[in-house]
Write a protein that binds this DNA or RNA. Structure first.
Lengths: 225, 225
DNA sequence: GCAAAAGTGTTAAAACTACACCCATGG
DNA sequence: CCATGGGTGTAGTTTTAACACTTTTGC
């Protein structure tokens, strides 16, 4: 089939930006890269890039995530598409934003020549961000908070085995509120989303804790809180 | 500032498709247009079109909605962006889909020369759809069902004044389940989202009903069901 | 007077909230 | 032996779910 040459008409560049979250040092953090090119030399931004002509937009997001973290198979969800005319000073760029959740353990941050650096930032203490990335990150944080409450996606933030204390702490950090330990445990058990590994976490100056793992590692709608 | 000519690099066409819902004849219905151009001559599709170079993507959706329905100021929300490489046989087109809710009353469907016709279809009895519009509509229906339960967006489906029976019916039709009349009324009143107009609906062969109106006509998160 | 939708409370079950003590370990 | 987080049950409150009859109108 002959393809119409849409270049004669309206066109735009499609980019994708990925807001990558982890929980680290008792804080919800976002992965940002430091930009080199003007006019954002001093700014940080969520990792992003152009979608290739023969690449699905979803695949571009996966690729960008992989390039920065070396990870595949983590939670990655389309967030929102940012399409204001002037959002990019270089031209018309529409960005399909995604957000990803990764466990902190064993991530090697990979910088490239394109950027000056890669770094985690707590969402409560972000540096000035390029483009409309402040809005994008804020949007992602809201979505994450909402989804934590009614889905099982935390599984993507925790290591393979974890204690109930760690699970609860993860919720508390992201939701910014304290949960009752007994009620929390009751709820989690009643949902049947985790199971014992049979192992325990030793080596800490306190009572050893049972280690659990998620029964399913696929996104599901579940009323957690 | 000199703008980079991104045409030298990757590019795509940005389109927007709008899934327009109403409740009509006791059914949730979608507005579809009948296509003329190949290879979709016999197919129906959600109204859509290209985003102009100097047009925000949001504004494009508003424009498309207005062109088909003559309506502004109704509920319109970005749904999802569909970006598979081969979703459009004519070339690389990324579509930012939206969904809209309109009251049925007083809408004049406006066809244009571009199409063979415009028509409402029940979501349970859709004709074959062009492109990936089957997926887009399904996606929109899911989103609508979910949002009805935790927001006040029904306001955009009903006329200025309505009875509690009509409100309940609207929920029942879309959610495809029956609600208990007394519990429903109790809940709605306790939320304080509607108020009496003081008028009543007469002329029907049954007891006249109080007419209500929404206190706020802005989207809000509210646990309705 | 009949058909059809409007309007109106109570009760039982389930879910949620608040809350305090003992346990096992490393240092 | 002390500090630290792990682990456990109950009672009061709130929320939800189920349920039936009387009212008002047009025909």
């Amino acid at each position: 089939m002959k393809k119409t040459d849409y270049r004669k008409y309206e066109f735009a560049v499609i980019a994708s930006d990925v807001v990558i979250f982890t929980v680290l040092e008792e804080k919800l953090q976002v992965l940002l890269i430091k930009m080199k090119k003007k006019p954002f030399e001093k700014c940080w931004a969520a990792p992003g890039g152009l979608v290739k002509p023969d690449e699905n937009v979803d695949d571009a997001a996966k690729r960008l995530l992989f390039e920065k973290t070396g990870l595949k198979d983590v939670y990655l969800e389309q967030l929102y598409t940012f399409g204001k005319v002037d959002r990019d000073p270089f031209g018309r760029v529409v960005s399909v934003a995604y957000f990803a959740l990764i466990p902190h353990s064993g991530i090697m941050l990979q910088t490239t020549e394109e950027y000056e650096g890669v770094q985690w930032f707590p969402v409560d203490a972000l540096p000035p961000l390029a483009y409309d990335h402040k809005e994008i990150v804020a949007n992602a944080v809201n979505r994450l908070r909402a989804k934590l409450e009614y889905t099982n996606i935390v599984y993507s933030l925790l290591p393979e085995a974890f204690t109930l204390g760690e699970l609860q702490k993860t919720y508390e950090i992201i939701l910014k509120r304290n949960l009752d330990k007994r009620n929390f445990r009751k709820k989690i058990f009643s949902l049947g989303i985790i199971k014992k590994t049979g192992k325990i976490r030793k080596g800490l100056p306190n009572r050893p804790a049972e280690l659990y793992t998620f029964v399913h590692k696929k996104p599901r709608v579940v009323e957690i809180l």
